[in-house]
Design a protein around this nucleic acid. Structure first.
Lengths: 193, 193, 193, 193
DNA sequence: TATGAATGAGTTTTCATTCAT
DNA sequence: CATGAATGAAAACTCATTCAT
């Protein structure tokens, strides 16, 4: 791998995460990466393509962790905590990437391959659901419509993460992991007879 | 009074909600509002100031509804449902405004009055918390750290709303209100003896 | 005289003297004068007309002083010193006006009545010359071509005044009056037999 | 080397000399130089920076000639005439530059590096003064305060040059060189016993 | 006369992108 | 592959001026 390409991607990610895609100029990336304008265009062709590449790679990277954790889960509780926990951990480990993914989705959607993103999303969603039913006890019925389950699980983490990533919330995200996991379990646990 | 100013704000909101602040040009607002460039600047001074004005007004408007509902609540369950419900209702009633508030916070933060926004946020947060303890049964203890309570309540709605507002999710938001409310209740209800 | 008109002229003069005509906006004049935009245009019709009015009035005012002093002179020496002295005094008394006249001539020339300015200049020049020969001793011959006499007399004062008016030179202009007068006398005094 | 940069400077000088800095638009410079807008900004960054660059270069260029002539002078008379003469010659050789330097100093002062200009001025002034005393006869005393000596020498030339450069005065400047030189000598020559 | 909202041509500047070396 | 000068469309913003009240 040309380390040049990676330097550029890393520099672009930092810029995008702070200023957004539209607020980032090619010149900022050039300066931070140490590459030349020509080099940037030689490798990527356009600013949007750098952004797209980073976005897709980010999604993949995030889901890799989620999948690994989900596979390991042995029961419903572990499954729910795996989802919540993997999101928390990934965000804490990759704050720039997370800031970028959270805030720039609308921008990337309008330029990049929406179809590709949709596929990815759908695949991930279906995989999650099927795994859930593998692990749930016999006869378990979802207490909520399928459509909102992912939001119920991940929404709180994302909401808090946005505040934390922007500096609005100073209390560590990592420290809340257990609580988010507990809440997820409370919401989805089979009703106690 | 001056319908001009309002025309401009309305037009700007529509543009911002679709293209974001940076993706909206003065010319788009001019065309949609029917005002002249000069008029835009006469009334607001800059694109960012239009955005700020809309943002603050949006926050206030949203919180007005929330406050009204929260005041009406007679017990903890009604309180939790008031919060969740008011968010759902406001978003459904003001989809443009919601799209704008959700996606443009980082942009507004970097230009507008952060201090003003922080004050508003803090005030609203404290009011919510004190009302919660007014309504909770004697001896009720929060099952989670204060810092994450708001995220737990509102995160799922916001997560789903983002998908719905962007068209990624076609199932109506309004139809999920009850379920989000139930989930909130499940998370916060006093542990059943 | 409507004091409004005078307020506007005074405010405009201050602005022009600091920022130049082109660097002064109608809005600056409006703010400083307390008048409204409409009022400005009602009284003067355009920014250039305010500038022209001020410029011509300034020239007239300056020359009034010069003429008065020149009339009083009884001999060549007094005449030369009257010219030098009147310039020094006028500039010291009217620094804003002087700054304006010195720096904005090219700008006014391109818009205002050049013909009017030329007439004024020529008239003043001829009057000066005829007075000179009235006062000079019989048979006095100008030691220099007519064309440069005015420059020789006034050039030094103006050169110094520009530096003083701009703050580049802090030593008072008034304090140099006698020296400038002596130099003028040295240049033009009939050659000592 | 880069003829582009020089083309731009040359074009800008012509425009500035006619219309002033504020009256010159980037588009005029672009058209006259044949460069593109982007190129203008690539090389200079802003209109003011072009003006500053031209101004400083003009001052340096002028002073180079003055210094050369002053070094050559062997006595007080030659020294005085070297100063006066070098100014006349430089102005006649570089009318555009002269017009620019004369009229745009206030504009450049407000934007450019005043400190740099002050240093240059002061250095030149002190050099002149020390050279004067090297060449003056033993015991020579300045007949005027130091502060006004430069104005006395150069003021007349500048006053006349302004008129000539603007077209108000049609008689050639070059033709007056000797007379200005004589006047300077008359003012500063040691008093004849 | 006074006011200030409204106008829109004109300006400066930015920035993604191209391309010759 | 790398470089950075060159390009020009597009953007934000300014400001003299008009005009209805």
């Amino acid at each position: 791998m040309s380390s040049r390409k990676d330097d550029i991607l890393q520099a672009a990610l930092e810029c995008f995460s702070i200023h957004g895609i539209e607020g980032t100029t090619i010149d900022m990336i050039r300066e931070k990466s140490g590459a030349s304008v020509g080099s940037l265009y030689h490798h990527f062709g356009s600013k949007e393509k750098i952004a797209s590449a980073l976005y897709m790679e980010g999604l993949r990277n995030m889901r890799e962790l989620q999948d690994k954790r989900v596979q390991r889960a042995q029961n419903l509780e572990q499954f729910l905590k795996a989802i919540v926990g993997s999101h928390v951990d990934w965000i804490v480990t990759n704050p720039d990437w997370a800031r970028f993914l959270f805030s720039q989705r609308p921008v990337v959607s309008q330029t990049g391959d929406q179809s590709l993103m949709k596929e990815e999303s759908l695949a991930s969603y279906q995989q999650l659901m099927s795994r859930l039913f593998e692990l749930a006890p016999e006869g378990y019925e979802l207490p909520y419509p399928k459509a909102i389950c992912v939001s119920l699980l991940i929404g709180p983490v994302h909401e808090y993460a946005r505040a934390w990533l922007s500096g609005r919330q100073s209390k560590s995200l990592a420290g809340q992991k257990e609580f988010f996991a507990q809440a997820a379990w409370r919401i989805f646990q089979p009703s106690v007879a």
